[in-house]
């Protein structure tokens, strides 16, 4: 148990990686949200648009939780010096590359086109080159520094999105429980 807790990243290590996941996941959804926004103004009230946003943020909250599981899981599974000691840069690289691939995959899913099943089938194998890239790119010192700086700055978004998500989750729960 001691060895497990020793491999678990510290809170100040998780925060920039989680912030990176949050920014990517929420930004992706918000782009779609604002694309739809003008049409909602045609028939939805401000309150209804806010509730839609609450459902969206609740889904994003769950997704960001899932996204942070991957680097934390690797940190726990792998030897400390492989991942835990370089958690911020390697975790950020994993999140950026992983979610970047998902963004590419999502981009391939278009209206009136068949689901890109061939791409989906090979997706588990994509994890290997992504992991390789995570370890290779982390060797580049200046990239590591940039990522650490970036991660540090992205944590500011947690102060916006986490309270909003908590409020959204509460909204969804209240609307469905009562």
């Amino acid at each position: 148990m001691n060895s497990l807790s020793g491999k678990f990243p510290a809170r100040n290590q998780i925060a920039p990686v989680y912030a990176t996941a949050v920014v990517i996941i929420y930004a992706w959804s918000l782009i779609h949200f604002f694309w739809r926004f003008p049409s909602w103004l045609y028939f939805a009230t401000t309150g209804e648009i806010a509730v839609t946003l609450a459902y969206l943020f609740t889904v994003n909250f769950i997704e960001s939780g899932l996204a942070i599981l991957a680097p934390v899981g690797l940190s726990v599974i792998l030897p400390r010096r492989w991942f835990r000691n370089r958690f911020v840069t390697r975790g950020m690289l994993l999140v950026i590359l992983g979610l970047g691939y998902l963004a590419y995959f999502d981009w391939q899913i278009q209206a009136d086109a068949a689901f890109p099943y061939a791409l989906a089938k090979w997706t588990p194998l994509i994890a290997l080159p992504i992991l390789a890239l995570v370890f290779l790119l982390d060797k580049i010192k200046w990239l590591g520094r940039i990522l650490e700086e970036l991660g540090d700055r992205l944590t500011i978004f947690l102060y916006i999105f986490v309270p909003l998500s908590a409020l959204s989750l509460l909204t969804v729960l209240v609307r469905n429980l009562f």
């Binding site: 992706w28 997704e63 979610l99 998902l102 999502d106």
Partner: peptide, 8 residues
């Protein structure tokens, strides 16, 4: 449409 939820 292209998925709004990046992961799910």
């Amino acid at each position: 449409e292209s998925p709004v939820s990046l992961m799910l």
